[in-house]
């Protein structure tokens, strides 16, 4: 039997986190050790509750620990006015989260960084950390457990952009919500794969494909389809795209099939001082900084392959 790849997920569930978890739940080649939650798409309270609900929906029986409720330095986000509500819904699950039963399990009574450390220590193999949220928990773990860096296979993070942004003109939301944490992560010696907007913006799901998830995935598929509705509508209206963009699925899809993504290996640093560029992942594709490459940056993704993975994954829940 194929050896399973041990992973930890750090999430802010979130519509696209949910779809990423779908891929994880259906994967034969991944062994999910733990999930940690963080503020981001919604408040920590909501992302944690959502994560527990989605785990039960998808049959993921793993420990979940709640991490940071706010960025390391920037002030906490006021979710009563944050624009993420318009994207992920008031409940973070496209306003259909109330269709899921309240979670029966609770989050572990331990710090997110401690749960990560525990999972990594218990694993024989090096562990891959998939982060689809602001990097606050990851930064905390890296600072708190310097001895465990070498047991991290890599950090596969959804965030950043060589060009463009979705929070500011040149700022991506996961990085923009905690630039200082991101700086700590990019400064670290752990191998990094940045699944940036350069590739993820191409990963939209059309209405037909969304329907295919419903048609193939039974009640779970139906829920996922509806969960993406508002998210899809806003991408159509504001982004002029054919549907919702499944940013967070890309790192998981890459763990399942490396051919889904094309990378450039280059130096990435996080701008902290710019007034409106704070949180920009400065990606030195040409080599101006003279610094050695520290990150694999996704430049292109195979959209159809990625979407098909979701449809195939949904079949397992029929």
């Amino acid at each position: 039997m194929l050896k399973k790849k041990p992973i930890i997920m750090d999430v802010d569930t979130g519509v696209d986190d949910t779809l990423a978890l779908l891929l994880v739940a259906a994967a034969d080649t991944l062994e999910l050790k733990a999930i940690t939650t963080v503020f981001g798409n919604c408040s920590l309270e909501t992302t944690t509750e959502n994560t527990l609900k989605i785990c039960e929906l998808l049959g993921l029986d793993v420990p979940v620990a709640a991490g940071a409720y706010r960025p390391v330095i920037d002030p906490p986000i006021d979710y009563s006015v944050a624009p993420m509500v318009d994207i992920h819904g008031r409940d973070g699950l496209g306003n259909v989260g109330n269709r899921l039963p309240a979670p029966t399990k609770q989050a572990e009574k331990m710090a997110a960084a401690d749960l990560m450390a525990k999972a990594i220590k218990e694993s024989e193999e090096k562990v891959t950390i998939v982060a689809t949220a602001p990097l606050t928990n990851i930064a905390t773990f890296l600072l708190a457990y310097p001895d465990l860096h070498e047991k991290v296979e890599c950090i596969a993070l959804m965030g950043g952009a060589a060009f463009g942004g979705n929070m500011g003109f040149s700022v991506e939301a996961n990085i923009g919500h905690d630039p200082d944490a991101a700086k700590i992560v990019f400064m670290s010696d752990v191998p990094k794969y940045m699944f940036s907007l350069d590739a993820t913006m191409g990963c939209f799901i059309t209405d037909d494909e969304r329907q295919a998830i419903a048609d193939n995935g039974g009640k779970t598929g139906e829920f996922l389809k509806d969960c993406m509705q508002q998210y899809s509508d806003i991408y159509k209206a504001l982004g002029g795209l054919p549907g919702a963009v499944l940013h967070d699925s890309l790192p998981v899809a890459w763990l399942l099939d490396e051919s889904v993504v094309e990378f450039k290996h280059c130096y990435v640093d996080v701008e902290l001082k710019g007034v409106k560029t704070r949180g920009c992942t400065v990606t030195d594709l040409v080599g101006y900084t003279g610094k050695s490459a520290n990150t694999y940056v996704s430049m292109k993704a195979d959209r159809e392959k990625l979407i098909n993975m979701h449809i195939e994954a949904a079949k397992k829940f029929n």
């Binding site: 060009f163 463009g164 003109f169 001082k273 710019g274 400065v282």
Partner: peptide
């Protein structure tokens, strides 16, 4: 005008 690394960048509002 003030970024450590983005100073002098003409930042485009693509979206």
């Amino acid at each position: 005008c003030v970024g450590e690394m983005t100073r002098g960048q003409t930042v485009i509002d693509w979206l």
